[in-house]
Design a protein around this nucleic acid. Structure first.
Lengths: 246, 246
DNA sequence: CGCGCTATTGAGAGAGCTCAATGTGCGTGG
DNA sequence: CCACGCACATTGAGCTCTCTCAATAGCGCG
C-alpha cells in the first residue's frame, strides 16, 4: 500500500531545491507523492535496457549507476547517482530503457508511479520545469563526460571526475572540506571513465605521489583542490548548481 | 518585427511529429510562434559557452553542431544537428551555456524567444512533454556517443555514427535507400568521434575497401547496411523514433 | 584460516597519435 | 580561361599512451 513518507520525499525536495526554487504549495505536492520503498543489495539491477518501466526511482540511500553493456564484456558506466537523485526520470517520456540502472552499493530506493509524476507536472508547470531542468543537468554531465572521453587523457579525466563528485555531494550537504565518500571500486570508476582498472590504478598512484589526493576506504580527500582543478581545466558551470542563475 | 512564417515552423512540427503526436490545436499553437530568421555562413558561432541566451534556435537549412573547446586546441563536438532540430532547447531551463553552438555549413536559422516557448509549455502541458522528450532523446544520444568513446574502437565508432546519421535523416524524410548527406569534413567528423583526422581517414579507407560504404562530395552511401550495423552492434532504440512506443 | 574480490606492480604489445610530405579540388583574381 | 592559394584528403614513419596478460599482495567475510 503506497503511503507518503515525509522523510523519503524530503530527499527529493532537497535535491530539487539545490537546482531551483519551489513554492510552498509545490513542495507540499511533492511531499505528498505516493511511493513504495525497497532495500537492495549492492550490484543489483533496478531496471534493465529494454524494460518499459511505469515508475521512477528515487535514491534514499547508497549509490547507483546507469550503464550500457557491449560485446566482449565491455561496460560503460554513464552516470553515478547519490541519494536524492532520480536516475531514471527520463523514463517518464522515453518509454523504453536504452540502458540499465543498477545499485553500486547497498541502497534504499523509493519508487514513484509515472502517473503520479505526470499528474504533478500537469498541475504544476513549474514542477515540470524543475524536473525537466534536472534531466537537462543530467545531459550537461553527459556532455562533460563525453568531452573527457574524447579529448582528455586519463590523468585529466580522473581529476575531473573527482572534482565533479565532490561538488555534487557538497551541493546536497553530503560533503565539506574537500572530502567526500566514493564507495566504488577501481573497476567501477574505470568503467565510468573508459579506462582499464590497471591504467586507472597507475594514474591514481601518480596523483597520490604528487599529494593531490588521498583515497582510502571509500573516502576521497582532495588535498590540493586548486592544483587538481587546474590540471583538468575544471569549470563547474556544467553542474548548473546556482539556482536561477545557471 | 517577428511575424509567423508557416514554412519555418512547419519544420519544427515535422520534427516533433517524428518523435510524438500533436493535436491540431497544439500544431496551430506551434505554427503561430513568433520567430526571426537569419542566414549564416559556414563555421559561424550561434551561441557561445558562457552566454545567457533569451531565445532558441531552430535549424531551417544546413547543419550545426554543439562543441566544447579545451586547451591545446582540442575540440569535442557533442552533437550534430540537421534541419528541424532545436539544438539549444536546453537553454530554456539552463540559463548559462556550458558549451557552444555553431554552424558547420551555410545555414538558415529561426530564432524563437524563450518567453514564447515558456508560455506555450504552460498553456499546453503536452507540448512541454514533447519538447522535454526531445531534450531527453538528445541526452540518449549523448549516452550512446559516450559509450562509443569509452568502449568502442575507431572502426566501430565510425560505423555507429554513420548508422545514426542515416536513420536520423531518414526519420524526417531527408534520406532513403541507405544514402544520405553528410556535408562535414573529416576534421569535423574526427572531432565528433574523439579521433584524429589521420586515423579517421585510415579507418575510413578500410571501410571503403571492404565495400561497406562509399563517400564522395558530402554523400554517404551505405553499401552493406546489415554488415555495418553488425560490426558496431548498432541498436536504434536510443533514437526513440517510434512514436508512443519508445 | 581460506576463499574471493580488489588493489598493485611488471612486462610487453598495439591502437591511435604526432609530425611531415604529397595529392586534390575549388574559389578567386588576373 | 588559367594560375595561384588554401583547405581538405591521403599516405608514410615513428612514437606513446593505454591496453593485455600475468603474478603478487591485501582485505573482508563465512
Amino acid at each position: 500500500m503506497p503511503s507518503p513518507d515525509p522523510h523519503a520525499m524530503a530527499m527529493l525536495v532537497r535535491k530539487l531545491e539545490s537546482i531551483a526554487d519551489l513554492s510552498a504549495e509545490e513542495r507540499e505536492a511533492i511531499l505528498g507523492l505516493p511511493l513504495r520503498t525497497q532495500a537492495l543489495q549492492a550490484k543489483q539491477d533496478i531496471v534493465r535496457e529494454g524494460d518499459r518501466p511505469s515508475q521512477c526511482c528515487l535514491i534514499l540511500n547508497g549509490w547507483a549507476c546507469r550503464y550500457k553493456l557491449l560485446g566482449e564484456g565491455r561496460r560503460q558506466i554513464l552516470s553515478l547517482h547519490i541519494p536524492g537523485d532520480v536516475p531514471d526520470l527520463q523514463s517518464l517520456h522515453l518509454h523504453t530503457m536504452d540502458h540499465s540502472l543498477g545499485t553500486l552499493t547497498k541502497a534504499t530506493l523509493a519508487f514513484i508511479p509515472h502517473d503520479a509524476l505526470r499528474a504533478l507536472t500537469v498541475r504544476f508547470p513549474n514542477v515540470a520545469a524543475v524536473l525537466w531542468r534536472d534531466t537537462l543537468i543530467d545531459a550537461a554531465t553527459f556532455r562533460e563526460w563525453m568531452t573527457g572521453m574524447g579529448r582528455r587523457d586519463a590523468y585529466e579525466r580522473i581529476a575531473h571526475l573527482f572534482c565533479e563528485l565532490y561538488l555534487k555531494q557538497e551541493a546536497v550537504g553530503l560533503a565539506t572540506e574537500h572530502r567526500c565518500q566514493i564507495p566504488l571500486t577501481q573497476i567501477e570508476l574505470s568503467d565510468a571513465l573508459g579506462l582499464t582498472p590497471v591504467h586507472f590504478n597507475r594514474v591514481l598512484k601518480e596523483m597520490r605521489e604528487k599529494r593531490l589526493i588521498a583515497m582510502k576506504a571509500g573516502t576521497l580527500a582532495i588535498e590540493a583542490w586548486d592544483e587538481l582543478a587546474r590540471a583538468c581545466e575544471f569549470d563547474p558551470t556544467y553542474l548548473h548548481l546556482v539556482k536561477r542563475q545557471s
